[in-house]
Amino acid sequence: MSASAVSPARTSRGSYSDPRESPATEVLRTGNGVRDLNPATQLSLAGGLALTAVLFGPLCMVIVVTICLVLSALAGRARPFLTLFTRTILILGIAIVALQTFFVPGTTELFSWWLFTATAEGLAAGIQIASRVLGVGASVILLIQILNLDRLVLDMEQRGMSPRATYVITATVNIIPQMRKQMGVIMDAQKSRGVETDSNLWVRTQAFVPTIGPLILNSIMGVEEKALTLESRGFSATGTRTSLRYVEDRPRDKRLRVLIVCALVAIIGVRIVLWIL
C-alpha cells in the first residue's frame, strides 16, 4: 500500500473505480485462487452445491461433499473443513440415520434390539434426510472456510448495500470478544463480593442475573456514546464515499457465476424431468 493519498476516481455514487488507477487503495487479496474469488462467486458456488444436494439423493450428496472437500483443499483449508465436518454435521447425520431407523414405523423389520425395532422404511428415510443435511452442511462449511468477512462486507458495499447494514455485520464480529472479556471482569467482581458460581443448580441460576445484568446495562448505556462518536465521523452523511480498500470482481468471476447459474438451470431441469418420468 502506497502512502501517497490519491483518492480513486469516482464514476457514480456507490461505484468504485479500478483500484489500479490509485496507488492508495489496498486490494484485499490472500494469494490463494479459491479464497480470492469474489465473495458473490463463493456464495453462489456454495448455494448451488447445497441446492444440488437437496434436490438429489445420497449419491449426489457424496459428490457434493467430495467437491466441497476438494475446493477446501485447494483453498488450503482441508484440515479445518474436515474437523468441523466430522464434529458437527457428520455426528448429526449419523444420529438422524440411527433415530429414523429405530423410530419410524414400518412393516419391514430389519432387526430388533432391546426396546427398539429397526425398520427398512426408517433406514431409507434416515439416509434420505441425512444426505440432505450432509450436503447442505458441507456447502456451508466450505463457505465458512473460503469466505473472508472483510471481503464479503466490502463487496456488499461496492454492490450498493447501505454502510449501515455492513456496519452491523462488522461491529458484531468485533464486539463479541470484547464482551466476553467484560463478562470475565464482572464475573470476577461478583465472585469477590461473594456471589457463588460453582455451587448447586439453584445458586448457580441466581448467579446468572448479577453477571449478565450489569453487562447488558453497561452496553446499552454505551450505545449513545457510540452513536455520538460515529455521527461526529460522518456515519449518517449522504454522498459518495471513498474506500481505502477494494475487492476485485474479475471477468473470470463473472464467467464462473454465469456457469454456475447455467449448471443450476440444467440440474433443476434434470430433476423436473426425473420427477415427471
Partner: peptide, 10 residues
Amino acid sequence: ILLIPIAVAV
C-alpha cells in the same frame, strides 16, 4: 442499528 451488534454479543 448500534444496538444490534451488542444484542448479538449478549
